[in-house]
């Protein structure tokens, strides 16, 4: 689920960072930043350096964000999917929220075991003449080796917290994290090798085509052009040679009730 409501997204973001929302009417949101968020978003390192030197606690700014385009003439920043501010926030999230360890919230008075899961959100980028991305959320039960897709969707159905609930205890992983990750990798490799990859064939065809043209272009020219020809071939190769990049967005260790897999 991509961000659908920017206003809600921002509200959640600032709340999660413990900032007070002073006002939020009609698509205009005013936020009282705290020091951490002022440092992260307001780009004034000299102020913080100076004020701390002076022994002063500092004075975090207020930020007014406008999510309703009809209000954009008002005082504040119009924030939308292309605005630099949103990208700053998105990058802040992507850089800081990489790793986690979470426990399922369980209200119980009997001893309950929690199974460790390795959850990995991974992006596959197919890059040829054009580019496209795919996003996978995979989970591996580190006790019995069960693997689940669309993990994030499933995790949204339950409550999670950073500390373990009362009467709960964790089972130690039988599969090490590293080998767990290798299992996930193997599954993805398998997935990739079962595809036809027409995009890559197209791209290779374009590559061969242009290299051929290039050779024709330099036909009959003297030796000294060789360096130039190589440079141009490199450029063409760089532009067209198909590749697939896998990059992990974020992931972590999740301790979940064994009934998790059956209920969802």
């Amino acid at each position: 689920m991509a961000i659908s409501n920017l206003n809600t997204f921002l509200k959640d973001y600032f709340r999660a960072h413990h900032c007070e929302i002073l006002q939020n009417d009609n698509g205009i949101m005013q936020i009282q930043l705290n020091e951490e968020m002022d440092r992260a978003l307001m780009n004034r390192p000299f102020y913080w350096h100076y004020i701390k030197k002076m022994g002063h606690p500092g004075d975090p700014m207020k930020l007014t964000l406008i999510t309703n385009p009809e209000q954009r003439e008002q005082n504040g920043e119009w924030i939308h999917f292309g605005s630099p501010r949103l990208h700053q926030i998105i990058n802040h999230l992507k850089n800081n929220e990489r790793f986690t360890k979470l426990f399922q919230t369980i209200e119980t008075t009997t001893n309950t075991a929690l199974h460790p899961w390795l959850v990995v959100n991974i992006k596959i980028s197919y890059i040829g003449k054009q580019k496209k991305d795919e996003l996978f959320s995979l989970g591996l039960n580190l006790v019995n080796g069960a693997m689940k897709t669309e993990m994030m969707e499933k995790l949204r159905q339950i409550d999670l917290q950073n500390a373990i609930s009362d009467y709960c205890y964790t089972i130690s992983p039988l599969i090490k994290i590293n080998s767990g990750f290798n299992r996930i990798k193997a599954v993805l490799d398998d997935y990739l090798s079962n595809q036809e990859h027409k995009w890559a064939q197209d791209s290779l065809k374009a590559l061969e085509n242009e290299v051929e043209l290039l050779k024709h272009f330099y036909q009959g020219n003297d030796e000294q052009d060789e360096e130039r020809v190589q440079k141009e071939i490199d450029e063409i190769t760089q532009r067209y040679s198909p590749k697939i990049d896998l990059s992990v967005i974020n992931g972590g260790l999740f301790y979940l009730n064994p009934s998790f897999t059956t209920t969802s």
């Binding site: 961000i3 997204f9 999660a16 800081n96 929220e97 986690t100 991305d133 996003l135």
Partner: peptide, 23 residues
């Protein structure tokens, strides 16, 4: 440090928003 569930989930949402779904 570990991310809270909220922020962890928002980072995922953010990626879904910025990713390129089609060639």
């Amino acid at each position: 440090p570990f991310s809270s569930w909220e922020l962890f989930e928002m980072a995922y949402q953010a990626e879904q928003t910025t990713m390129t779904k089609e060639f």
